[in-house]
Design a binder for these strands. Structure first.
Length: 819
RNA sequence: GCCGGAGUGGCGAAAUGGCAGACGCGGCAGCCUCAAAAGCUGUUGAGGGCAACCUCAUGGGGGUUCAAGUCCCUUCUCCGGCACCA
């Protein structure tokens, strides 16, 4: 019979699946399963990262189909974004035309992989049917005060000519083009994600099946820290200076306080003092250093500059510069007068912009105090009396736990206990207030770009900011906009778009020309997939109730913060609107590893890209799928290997040949191996451990090569292989005489009785070292077993003349004799 | 600096505390062939031994245990996240 001609086979079955709508998802009374992968940006070509991501999801979906679930496995395109504009400038085309061309091409490439999508549910975020609902959601948020406009210094990418969210600044550069990010004062739209900070943090606990590292990253990003705001006063003016600390137990050790250079009270404090000039000079100098350098991750660069310095035991390599203001503050717990300094290591945007400095117990304060010869006082002592710290002998701050000293009525308490007691005492006396600070900031969504969702807002001279009425949605992007590549949004230059009449008073008004960050689009697409053509709302509440939540979500780790945090935020917002009844959209998350070539990420600039299309042409999609699953566990990095893909292809051919040599009746031994394999593959699929599932399928195949298989055994092998190599398996399934798709064949069950072996091999160790093994019937009694073992010739030299101290029996496995 | 994760043959990798290296790639040998390709069968951690077999091996050093790649302590290296966050 025929050879394995993957080209014909793959085309045939792709057409079959599409025509027969095998993977159509419809609400039914069967148990549902929603398997979702992060939808791609339509750049035109798929890369190995897509192949890996979507193959993992596809195998799992097909496995769920075969188990009898009603599976929702949709695909769409995250189609807004800057490359379309860049292409428009470069190729003198329109972004919509370019994007749709890319989508078409990409869709055909995905189809060549044989993925089991319900293509009837395809969405593109750049279609007004979709982005209309972005605008709808924005308006709902606007009504509730969750979308607001604010002037502030924002991250600005000079190359993309647009603003960036904090989450989009990576190592001080633009996440997309890596250009150094600048600060710019602008009026911009924000979403009040901070209103959800408690829930975003708290509900992480519900995510039992998310990778720990994603949970940790989000926790850090939200950055909750609990402490006390303490009210110091300036000596002369009696002005309150609030200071935030998480270490209220060290309050008696505060020997000076430090304000950020931008702190609003600074000017007042230095006025008329001899220090005035020097302080002003210092502030000017700090202001010149860009905020990016001081506050963002570009610190890495600065760190390198300081790397040559001696910085043993230093918590960070930055030098701390500062000046004395000439003013004094009063410590409210002991009325001590302490100097007020200004330093660049205190940031205005965190806490209150002022700190109490405790050099003995904070490393940064320690370094600063040493540099400027400021006093130091121990207030936490080691609990070990034989080993006590003194402020003179310390080479670094002691930040650990201990016993309170020099702390008046709190002396002798453990510092953790004192922390609570002091905080309570401060609340009672009004010295301070228990408070929580957060790292999370509101989400900046304005972009000065064309290819995105227009923000549905109109500016009227009389009425101010006016939302576009729901009935007027969508605010459509004008198709013809001038793409010059010069600064500013092309939308500003489209008169018909900008010039409108006010929806309220009908007078002349101006339309907002900013568009939304594309992460807005992807924050709710998983809900749209439940009812992609719904016309009344972003999604049909009834359909979403059936399909949501997503049982398995699969995508790259690069979205651990951005997309996954925003999606969680939107879900909570929809819950508040009463549209969904759950807190979290994604039950289980798998972050797949990257595909590398020669130890490096595949990229155009490195020139090490392996094109999936070329591999499909040479070996077929099934071999590619098999290889990419087999080469490494799903979560770890995968090294592309040109030779190993050949191995995958060989394996398929090897299975293919079995059909020519089927026996009438297979040996019972092979049937037992089959059932073992069914068990192993089922368990591994459930845990998305495809590499070991495949290796057990290879073992079964090897066993069949040794002793042969009958039709029954071979059919089962083909079924087990079908989620991985679907075209290949459908073809064999048909050759075996089946009329229906193998997807409908059902997932095989294993017979537990067949897994029980009659004879088992027991390993015998002497003093933990392997010395012999015996084969015995499963039900051998311990006494008998002991007899057999002790008469084993191989053991004689090891046991001779030595008394047996212990005889350990691990049932059905191992015996260890200790002599 | 803090928080995660990882270090196992030439390579990708397996191992509920119980035979380390399953499965595959590559290598070597053989069969088939005029030859090649394809395929099939062996073999393949290191060292020693004619052999049966022995010794050593999961980044390093300690420990717990009858038994450790796996648990604990310590240390080194690499990767990722956060970072003058008070």
């Amino acid at each position: 019979m025929g050879d394995y001609i993957f080209k014909e086979i793959e085309k045939k079955w792709q057409q079959f699946w599409e025509k027969e709508k095998i993977f159509k998802a419809e609400v039914s009374d069967r148990p549902k399963f929603y398997c979702l992968e992060m939808f791609p940006y339509p750049s035109g070509k798929i890369h190995m990262g897509h192949v890996r991501n979507y193959t993992i999801a596809d195998v799992y979906s097909r496995y769920k189909w075969m188990q009898g679930f009603n599976v929702l496995h949709p695909m769409g395109f995250d189609a807004f974004g800057q490359p379309a504009e860049n292409a428009a400038i470069k190729n003198k085309t329109r972004p919509d035309i370019w994007t749709h061309k890319c989508i078409e091409w990409m869709r055909s490439e995905l189809k060549k992989m044989g993925f089991s999508y319900d293509w009837d549910r395809e969405i593109s975020t750049c279609d007004s049917d979709y982005y209309k609902w972005n605008q709808w959601i924005f308006l709902k948020m606007f009504e509730r005060g969750l979308a607001y406009k604010k002037a502030s210094a924002v991250n600005w990418c000079p190359s993309c000519q647009t603003t960036l969210a904090n989450e989009e600044v990576v190592d001080g550069g633009c996440w997309r083009c890596h250009t150094e990010v600048k600060q710019k004062e602008l009026e911009q739209w924000y979403l009040k994600i901070t209103d959800y900070k408690e829930r975003l943090l708290e509900d992480l606990k519900q995510l039992k099946h998310w990778p720990q590292r994603v949970i940790t990253m989000q926790t850090n990003w939200i950055g909750k820290s609990q402490g006390v705001e303490i009210y110091f006063r300036q000596k002369e003016s009696n002005k309150v200076i609030p200071v935030f600390t998480t270490r209220v137990d060290t309050i008696f050790g505060a020997t000076y306080i430090v304000l950020a250079p931008e702190h609003p009270l600074v000017a007042e404090f230095i006025k008329g003092k001899p220090q005035e000039k020097e302080v002003a000079k210092f502030i000017a100098k700090v202001a010149k250093e860009s905020k990016v350098v001081r506050a963002s991750s570009e610190i890495n660069l600065v760190k390198e500059c300081w790397a040559t310095q001696e910085n043993k035991g230093v918590s960070n390599g930055l030098k701390k510069e500062g000046v004395f203001t000439g003013a004094y503050a009063v410590n409210p717990v002991n009325n001590e007068e302490i100097p007020i300094w200004i330093a660049d290591y205190v940031l205005m945007e965190y806490g209150t912009g002022a700190i109490m400095a405790v050099p003995a117990h904070d490393q940064r304060d320690f370094l600063f105090a040493r540099e400027h010869k400021l006093p130091m006082r121990m207030v936490i002592q080691l609990s070990d009396v034989s080993c006590q710290l003194t402020s003179d002998s310390m080479t670094e701050a002691y930040e650990g736990d201990g016993i309170q000293v020099n702390s008046r009525q709190f002396n002798g308490l453990a510092n953790q206990e004192a922390k609570i007691k002091i905080a309570e005492w401060m609340e009672q006396t009004g010295i301070g207030k228990i408070q929580t600070h957060w790292r999370l900031r509101d989400w900046l969504i304005s972009r000065q770009r064309y290819w995105g969702t227009p923000i549905p807002i109109i500016y009227c001279l009389k009425c101010g900011i006016v939302p576009v009425p729901y009935a007027d949605l969508p605010v459509e992007l004008p198709k013809d906009a001038p793409f010059t590549g010069e600064g500013g949004s092309p939308l500003e230059k489209v008169k018909e778009f900008v010039e409108v009449s006010c929806p309220k008073c009908k007078s002349k008004a101006r339309r907002e020309t900013d568009t939304m960050a594309t992460f807005f689009d992807s924050s709710w697409y998983f809900l749209r997939f439940c009812s992609p053509k719904y016309k009344e709302a972003p999604f049909d509440v009834k359909e979403a109730k059936y399909w949501m939540t997503v049982e398995q979500y699969i995508g790259g780790i690069e979205h651990a913060i951005l997309h996954l945090l925003y999606s969680r935020f939107f879900t909570k917002f929809f819950k508040d609107l009463g549209m969904v009844d759950f807190d979290e959209p994604f039950q289980r998350l798998l972050t797949q590893g990257m595909v590398l070539k020669d130890g490096e990420v595949m990229s155009k600039s490195r020139g090490n890209i392996v094109d999936p299309d070329a591999i499909i042409k040479k070996y077929g999609a099934d071999s590619l799928r098999l290889f990419i699953l087999f080469a490494a566990p799903a979560e770890t990095e995968l090294e592309w290997d040109d030779r190993a893909i050949e191995g995958a292809y060989k394996f398929l051919k090897r299975v293919w040949r079995i059909k020519n040599n089927l026996k009438e009746k297979a040996d019972p031994a092979i049937v037992r191996v089959l059932h073992k394999t069914i068990k192993k593959v089922s368990e591994d699929f459930q845990e998305l451990k495809f590499n070991t599932a495949i290796s057990s399928l290879m073992e079964l195949t090897n066993a069949i090569y040794l002793s042969g298989a009958d039709k029954e055994v071979f059919s089962k092998l083909v079924i087990l292989l079908s989620p991985i190599a679907p075209h290949f398996s459908e073809e064999l399934w048909q050759i075996l005489g089946n009329k229906e798709s193998i997807v409908k064949a059902g997932w095989p069950a294993y017979e537990p009785n067949l897994l029980i072996e009659e004879n088992i091999t027991i390993v015998i160790q002497v003093n933990g070292k392997l010395r012999s093994r015996v084969e015995i019937p499963v039900d051998t009694e311990e006494k008998k077993l002991k007899e057999i073992v002790l008469s084993d010739d191989k053991l004689k030299p090891w046991l001779k003349g030595k008394p047996i101290k212990k005889f350990i029996i691990v049932p059905k496995k191992l015996i260890n004799i200790v002599v």
